[in-house]
């Protein structure tokens, strides 16, 4: 989130990435674990970098590497000046010779989930509407005004149910557990099934309505919200799904510190993806490493 509004808001960095390199964005929690061709290639690069002793720890950061997998540069700074310095130094070292494309010989299915065939992908975006103290830094301002992004996956059977005007319980539970979260400052804690005090969704004509009451056992993290939206079906397919969940959120998670101190309004939008955004292909955060559990 913060990189988008700092490093990648720099025209110099953007111009470099458009013209001098092939930019790729990954959730390293996948690649550093993948037991397949792609994972081996990623780890080969990282093992030459300052992140080489990663073990079970993160390898996050910005890397430059040659197409043959030779490490060229690394930084975990967000300052555009520091990033440009790394990019330029790496560029000077980059080999210009012929390199072959790597053949994908093995695929670790656990870390290469595919969207359900015949299902739907729905864009999910969250924003805190108010409640923060005035920002004291540029980075704090970025977090406080952030619009998050995740994807909701809907199975073929659930798609068919929506077409016939029903919202299956599994879909309601998936939305509540994995998508009614405050992910505007980083990776959020998802809700446990037992933390769903109530969750209901109905289709009335083309209206999509719902209500949710979620809370941890100690009550320190809570979300009480309603849903309103519209669902349009044509020729046996959902062709439009726009919805908003709006309610009062309380609390924060280990990686989402510095939420507003008092209960705050959190809005979450749902929009049927059409594949036009590169992020439409990103798997749901809640299904990381266990997509079958996410979709059950």
């Amino acid at each position: 989130m913060i990189d988008r509004a700092s490093t990648f808001a720099s025209p110099q960095v953007v111009q470099f990435l458009k013209t001098k390199a092939i930019p790729v964005a990954i959730d390293q929690a996948y690649q550093r674990r993948q037991q397949d061709t792609e994972g081996e290639f990623y780890r080969r690069i990282v093992q030459q970098s300052p992140r080489k002793d990663f073990g079970n720890n993160t390898t996050q950061g910005l890397f430059m590497a040659s197409a043959s997998g030779d490490f060229l540069g690394f930084t975990n700074h967000r300052s555009p000046d520091r990033v440009m310095q790394m990019l330029n130094e790496a560029w000077k070292k980059a080999p210009r010779g012929q390199v072959s494309a790597i053949v994908r010989e093995t695929v670790d299915r656990r870390y290469n989930p595919e969207p359900p065939e015949g299902g739907l992908i729905v864009r999910v975006q969250a924003k805190i509407l108010s409640g923060y103290e005035p920002a004291e830094s540029q980075f704090q301002h970025i977090f406080q005004t952030a619009l998050s992004r995740d994807n909701l996956w809907i199975t073929k059977a659930e798609h068919a149910a929506l077409v016939s005007g029903r919202v299956p319980r599994a879909l309601v539970t998936r939305i509540a557990r994995f998508h009614l979260v405050d992910n505007t400052r980083g990776e959020p804690p998802m809700w446990e099934t037992a933390e769903i005090q109530s969750a209901d969704m109905t289709v009335k004509g083309s209206d999509l309505l719902g209500s949710f009451r979620l809370a941890t056992a100690d009550g320190r993290r809570r979300y009480e919200a309603t849903m309103r939206g519209e669902l349009q079906v044509q020729d046996g397919r959902v062709v439009n799904l726009d919805a908003v969940v709006l309610g009062t959120f309380t609390g924060e998670g280990r990686y989402t510190r510095n939420a507003p101190k008092e209960p705050f309004p959190l809005a979450i939008s749902f929009t049927l993806a059409d594949g036009s955004d590169i992020a439409d292909g990103v798997p749901p955060q809640g299904g990381r490493g266990w997509i079958d559990g996410y979709l059950k």
Partner: peptide, 30 residues
């Protein structure tokens, strides 16, 4: 790009280096 191997293939073809934005949680996502 969102596939490291697809990006590697493009890098090889275009004789360019790879830039990898590796985060906890997908950087184009949450």
């Amino acid at each position: 790009q969102t596939s490291l191997l697809a990006a590697q293939s493009m890098a090889a073809e275009q004789k360019k280096p790879l830039f990898i934005w590796a985060m906890d949680g997908h950087p184009l996502g949450c």
